[in-house]
Amino acid sequence: MKEELVEKYFRPGRLPHLWCPGCGHGIITGAIVQAIDQEGWSKDDVAIISGIGCSSRASGYLDFNTANTLHGRALPIASGLKMANPKLHVIVVSGDGDCTAIGGNHLIHAARRNIDLTLVVFNNSIYGMTGGQYSPMTPVGSKATTAPYMTIEEDFDLPSLAQAAGATYTARATTYHTQLLIDVIKKGMEHKGFSLIEAVSACPTNFGRQNKMGAPALMMDWQRQHGVPLAAWNKMTEEQRAGKFPIGVLSERTDRKEYTEAYDEVIARAQAAL
């Protein structure tokens, strides 16, 4: 990210951030900032609402209307904010545990409503802040402090989950594929409706170490090797796909009404009946 963007969008005096050496969350936060900058939005018109966890610390660094709320609860708070002021561009920052475990119910219902929020899930495959417990997105067969004999639970395919729940835009990118990450976040921001972007991050401290992933750069190189652009993914056999995941815009649809706009119609109907 360009230095002038750091100066423009980060709150003065708050860097260096608290994330560990090699943590990908700084890259994702930077990608959000670059996407906002490309939109040309005023800082006053943007809100960043986060839950709790490593990812959710991102809100405090950024010079917008920001809230670091409760574990799993960013989406309901963001939904109320968006309803109250639909002109705000509301971006929700969450982690894999925050979003898919404790906040899972809120996720599927925000997606179902198709409310115009842009949700960026920082997926580092682990609960980092509490020291390395497995999340619903820890790959099955991984080690975690709460799975010393390896996890036995299958992990979520988050974009598919969101699609099934009704999200009208889903995408995935990694911190290695930085330019793609910026692009898919930007498209999600432009999309009218609920957008989910899974940003594959790395937690060298609490996931990498337990699973012998090597240095942070090697974890990022793992992303390069395992993230497959959608066009290539579509041509791969099931055997070739094993252990890999598609990246890019994974779904986009425009046939469902956005929630705040649909509610404007409720207001019109109620007032017509007076």
Binding site: M1, V6, F10, W19, C23, H25, G26, G30
Partner: peptide, 11 residues
Amino acid sequence: CEMRCPDYAIF
């Protein structure tokens, strides 16, 4: 390096 630095430390 600039693109992937997680700490905004290299430009």
